[in-house]
Each structure stands twice: as C-alpha cells, then as structure tokens.
Amino acid sequence: MNTERLTEPSKDELASGLRRLGAMDPGPDFAARVMGRIGTAAPLPAPKRRMARVIGWLMEPRTIRVSPLGSLAAAACLLLALGLFLKINPGAESGRTPAGLSPVTFVLAAPSAREVAVIGSFNGWKAAGWTMRNDPATGLWTLTTALPPGSHEYVFLVDGTTPVTDAAAALNVDDGFGSRNSVLLVKNGDGTAL
C-alpha cells in the first residue's frame, strides 16, 4: 500500500487535483471578447421544422416551362396511367362505393348466352339496368355493383327467360316455387362476400 502511494496517487488525491483545475478561467475580459466578435448581428432564425419546409415548398410560387412536345408526352403518360388504373380497378369507372355499401362482383361463365342479367332481392327481381357485361374471349359475364350488408338472394337470368343459380355461391336455397336461389352474404365494411 505504501509502495503504491509513492508511485500512484490515490483516487482522493486525484479527485482533489481535478477539483483544483476547476479554478482555471479564460480571464475577466473573455465575455467582452465574445460579445465583440458577435457584434451587432442578431441570432439566426430558427431552422424550420420539416413539415413547415414541405408546406413552404408547396406554397412557394414557381415557374414551370412546358414545351409542346413535353406536354404531349405528359398527356400520353397520363392517359396510359389512367388506362392502367381502370384496367386494374374495373369498379373505379363507376366511381367510389357509396358509404354503407360494399362492392360486389357477380360472375357467370356462359359462352353461348346472348344476354345475362342479375335479378334478386336487392333489385326487386327486375333485370332492367342489371345486365352483365360479356368478355367474348373468356365467355365470362360480369357485373360489379354495391350492396348493403346482409343476406341477398339472386339468380342469373340468361337470355331473358332462363334463371340459373350461381355455381360459385356458397349457398343455394329453395325459392318456394320449385326452383333454387343463390344466396350472397355481404359483410360489413370490407365488402367480403360469400
């Protein structure tokens, strides 16, 4: 212990030595020198927050130069994008789904049919305005609409005379007249249909 004290100071001695360093000071005129360097300048304005910078960028008027060729190219791109969007979202052409309703797509494979409509409890079993669209390449008839949540009975009316149940429906029930109706269950919100 004594040998160590001859070569290395104790921690208390070191702490005391460090505390003595706390007396070092840049001198009485230090503040005056700093203030002299600052001069009469005002502090810089606070940097804008990110959102303020974005809003500022959006609000700032700017000049946009458009060449005829450039505008044609832009219009072509816009049309292409719109076409792609409609192709990907076939329901988009009829606008947004009204509040409280869920989008539903009926599909029937009937390549030889001339006309197909959907009739059911949701349209009073009337075909007017519920004609399905045919894709001759696939033979599929489709119709996209929006229905309120709940249970809906329906059939496809082929060529205006023949009711056909939906083979893809999860449920078919007796219609009370010797035939069967398909049942569509529309859930709340996400439009999931059974």
Binding site: L21, P26, M35
Partner: peptide
Amino acid sequence: TLSGEREAFAVLVRRYQGPVYR
C-alpha cells in the same frame, strides 16, 4: 437575447465561460 437584447447573452457567457473554456 432572442428578443433583441444582446447584453443578455453576455450573462450566459459569463456564467458558462469557465466550463466551456476548461
């Protein structure tokens, strides 16, 4: 200081000049 009173900053300099210098 931010409201334009420059001398107020000198108070901060005097208060913290020691630790910053050291």
